[in-house]
């Protein structure tokens, strides 16, 4: 190798030397184009047409299903509301006086018994009924407004989260206590919430095998954490393969782990690797599905990485149950 290779961008090609500098290589790549045959163009367009037809069919089917679902929900809500209303009416003195029946002239003996039981209960019961009725009406209104919007309500997939938007959290980088403001990570597509340190942001993304969020620094690009949930049906073996594929691209060497590093019940596998970029890949399981937490950091950012990642794991709470990841 000649000295000129140490500074490729400034090198000049020798006379009669047919091979490029790195700059020439980049230029050549920019001009490099391969043309598909007409047959390839035709067949790939046919496949595109098949795809779009499926998409249109599915979209139409989904819209119909969503409308039917909303309609049936509305029907149930209306039936409940009607039932509650009739109970209230039957329990109202004015109604009973109107017919002069006291407590038992409507319906058969069994029904009279039920009505008498209701009358013996205190007033708060009626208040609850009215509240329920109002809620039913609200539900109906919500359903009506839904009819104006064909898009399914994705936010309804998980229960509402009641965690503060920000939180002061103490970490101990290098053994020294440090308090930092953290922001709630609550992505509608994710089944968990957690907190990320001020100065970081997250974005959601789709992968071929699932969907996830990536957490990055706002002003630097030294630390990055991907959290990805595999699609339903991805097996443990497949999840591990996908995860290995992910961390393999960093090109580093995997390090052996002590057994205690794998102790947490949710961890299926954990790999730490070092190289130009250091990383930690943890594959976990939740109910019958799998996910991974893959954090990468520049070697010089190692001290800052650990507390960032640790807060994400420590503050992790499942939306469905409110349980913590490490419970």
């Amino acid at each position: 190798m000649t000295d000129k290779n140490n500074n490729p961008n400034s090198e000049k090609r020798d006379e009669g030397h047919p091979f490029p500098t790195e700059t020439e290589l980049e230029e050549a790549m920019k001009e490099w184009k391969m043309e598909p045959s007409d047959k390839t163009k035709r067949e790939s367009f046919q496949r595109a047409m098949q795809g779009i037809e499926e998409a249109r069919r599915e979209s139409s089917k989904r819209n119909k299903m969503a409308k039917m679902k909303r309609w049936s929900q509305g029907l149930v809500a209306a039936a409940v509301a009607a039932g509650l209303l009739s109970l209230i009416v039957l329990n109202t003195d004015e109604f009973q006086n109107m017919f002069g029946t006291g407590s038992g002239s409507v319906g058969n003996d069994n029904e009279n018994e039920e009505i008498q039981v209701d009358n013996n209960e205190n007033e708060s019961n009626e208040e609850v009924d009215v509240t329920d009725l109002n809620e039913s009406n609200d539900t109906n209104e919500a359903n009506e407004s839904d009819d104006n919007n064909d898009a399914p309500d994705e936010s309804a997939e998980f229960p509402e989260v009641n965690r503060p938007e920000t939180k002061e959290i103490t970490t101990t980088p290098e053994g020294m206590e440090e308090v930092n403001t953290h922001h709630l990570l609550n992505d509608p597509s994710m089944p968990f919430t957690t907190y990320i340190r001020d100065g970081y942001y997250y974005e959601s993304f789709d992968k071929e095998f699932g969907k996830g969020v990536t957490i990055s620094q706002q002003d630097f690009d030294m630390i990055n954490v991907d959290i990805v949930f595999f699609d339903d049906g991805v097996t443990e073996v497949e999840a591990l393969q996908y995860a290995e594929e992910e961390w393999n691209v960093a090109g580093g060497e995997a390090l052996p782990l002590d057994e205690e590093e794998k102790l947490a019940g949710w961890i299926v596998e954990k790999v730490v690797h070092i190289g130009d970029v250091h990383g930690e890949m943890i594959v976990g399981s939740y109910e019958e599905s799998y996910f991974y937490i893959y954090s990468r950091y520049a070697p010089e950012a190692g001290d800052g990485w650990y507390p960032v990642k640790q807060v994400i794991v420590d503050e992790w709470e499942w939306k469905e149950t409110g349980e913590q990841l490490n419970d």
């Binding site: 047959k39 790939s44 595109a48 098949q50 795809g51 779009i52 499926e54």
Partner: peptide
């Protein structure tokens, strides 16, 4: 050739 067909099928199917 097979890959390019697969790409266009997936693109179109997931266009929404």
């Amino acid at each position: 050739e097979e890959l390019i067909q697969d790409i266009f099928f997936k693109m179109a199917k997931n266009l929404a």
